[in-house]
Design a protein around this nucleic acid. Sequence first.
DNA 1: ATCAAAAAATACATAGCTGTATCCGATACA
DNA 2: TGTATCGGATACAGCTATGTATTTTTTGAT
Lengths: 214, 214
Amino acid sequence: MGQSAEPTETSAERPLSRKRRQTQTRLLDAALDAFAERGFQGTSVEEICERAGFSRGAFYSNYSSKTELFIALYHRQSETILGALAKRASPSGQPVPHDLETVVRQILAAVPHDRRWYLINTEFALHAVRNPSAAATFAAARGRVRTIFAESLTEVLGRMDLELTVPAEDLARWLWAMSEGGTAQSYMEPQRLAPNDLIMQVAPLLLGAVTKPS
Amino acid sequence: MGQSAEPTETSAERPLSRKRRQTQTRLLDAALDAFAERGFQGTSVEEICERAGFSRGAFYSNYSSKTELFIALYHRQSETILGALAKRASPSGQPVPHDLETVVRQILAAVPHDRRWYLINTEFALHAVRNPSAAATFAAARGRVRTIFAESLTEVLGRMDLELTVPAEDLARWLWAMSEGGTAQSYMEPQRLAPNDLIMQVAPLLLGAVTKPS
DNA sequence: ATCAAAAAATACATAGCTGTATCCGATACA
DNA sequence: TGTATCGGATACAGCTATGTATTTTTTGAT
């Protein structure tokens, strides 16, 4: 939490040349696919490089290990979501919704419903649970998202003249848990459930239970 | 779904000797620890055997691959939960609870709050999402649990003179999603959240929102 | 006590992956 | 145009895992 926690370096931040950024992007893209298909541990550095059209030399000149790449990938995805969420959260954003379902729908639009992202995210969660240092990183990233999410919720509900009866951060946690749980179920039983089915059903009920006219 | 889907064989079911069952148990126990610590892909067959105090010979004479063991392990854990749940679901079970929180607490008592189980289960979910054949197995096992869970819910609520305004199976899904999502969060941020905190807070609210006096 | 079958240990052949060290080409700048 | 640096490819050395084939030990039945 000291310096601006941008990419993945310890000392002086070199500007990072154009070409270098390109190959990193290609490596990250390849890794996203590879990890999603075969899992983090099940994917060899070699395979990532093949998909990206590079040799292992290129890889090791950009990342010092598969784990470092993994973390970089997580950050990239995380920033993307954060950006999308922040855009939605801006007061000049969407029109004021008039029912809770619309609130939920608007917020969900910022979250990527990407199978690959689900897989990577879950793998990263496992990684974090097993690995205290990664856990801190992970918790911090999630915390930032949760805060923005909570602010967004309060703001939208406020514009609807509704008041929360529980802390917004708690509610954010709950909705997130439901969303993740539901998404997980949907990928496990794809024929029965679409990724957002569950949260779209439950969230309005829950929101109804924790709001009152202000 | 043809024969009784007991263990892991295709043809005639030999009774399975005492000793054999013992070593399988030890291998499964060892695998549970190993997988939890290092992950499925990150664990070598060798390591499982070491922990169990066997050589790889013993392993391959019991299981044809690490994946087969993995599936067997999942089934074993799954059966355990199912048993616990069924016991609770029996009408002669607990006294009639008088508030929704107690309902939730009673049901949660059947689910193991074991870090290892969380890890294995999540890994298996990933495995299933990536692997259609495992997905069927997985969905079936979860379906059985969900059904029993739903029945149990209906029964308990009925004894409290409450009636559901949504299908019990749906509610079971929702609660399960919340529980899993909350448990996941708790393991990611162990200092802030205990495994059942979230569901204990939310479930009563949700139950309140989907029940009415009958 | 002997022998047959089962269960587990050992040995082996092979394949794959990692990370480093070295080499080569392109680009940039003087 | 020469040269230094950067980015990436190639080569290499070593380790680890897998699965099978073979041997040894254990067990159980007669």
